[in-house]
């Protein structure tokens, strides 16, 4: 048993106030309390990256953070970042390159890719591979994902040359 805590946070731009058991993880809070099921849970011990979300501008593992810790914070998930259009070019590149199969890792992968592009705008394939190594994908073998991210980096840098 655990006691409840009240949290108020901005989730995808909306203010949310909820009482949740103190032990509730951020991922479970988003999925079950707010029904933002685009954030997935793959391992629940911080390894696979499927639950990657953004808190106050940084990507975190939703399974390793407690919902109680987001009190007063700004949280962004794949739903919000899709609606705002922030992920649009990544999503288009992933679609074009078939950089997803089952799609379970995809929301977390998109958030990781988005942070990579923001923090390492000159990243090449090696840096991309290193950065997304915290996000497991069992379907694609990663190459298509690397290609898609590389394409977006080139586009944003004004190149725009597609690659295969």
């Amino acid at each position: 048993m655990s006691r409840d805590v009240e949290i108020t946070a901005r989730i995808n731009g909306e203010s949310v106030t909820k009482r949740v058991p103190a032990r509730t993880s951020l991922a479970d809070f988003l999925r079950y309390d707010l029904e933002l099921t685009g954030t997935h849970v793959g391992c629940e011990h911080g390894v696979c990256g499927a639950c990657t979300v953004r808190v106050d501008g940084d990507i975190v593992r939703g399974c390793l953070m407690l919902a109680a810790q987001i009190d007063g914070a700004e949280v962004e998930t794949v739903e919000g970042l899709s609606a705002s259009g922030e992920l649009a070019d990544l999503q288009a590149a992933f679609l074009e390159r078939n950089a997803l199969q089952c799609g379970f890792c995809t929301p977390g992968m998109l958030l990781a890719a988005s942070e990579l592009i923001a923090t390492q705008p000159g990243a090449g394939r090696k840096e991309i591979r290193a950065f997304i190594s915290g996000n497991y994908c069992r379907c694609t073998g990663y190459e298509a994902i690397v290609d898609a991210i590389e394409t977006v980096i080139k586009q944003r840098n004004g190149g725009g040359a597609a690659n295969g």
């Binding site: 999925r31 079950y32 029904e35 933002l36 099921t37 685009g38 954030t39 997935h40 849970v41 998930t77 794949v78 739903e79 899709s82 992920l87 999503q91 992933f94 679609l95 074009e96 078939n98 997803l100 089952c102 799609g103 379970f104 995809t106 929301p107 998109l110």
Partner: peptide, 21 residues
């Protein structure tokens, strides 16, 4: 041709079993 049904997955709109309530 790209997969039309991949768009839902890219927007976090997939419905996996644990997403159903």
């Amino acid at each position: 041709v790209p997969r039309p049904n991949a768009k839902r997955l890219l927007h976090g709109r997939g419905v996996f079993v644990d997403d159903i309530k």
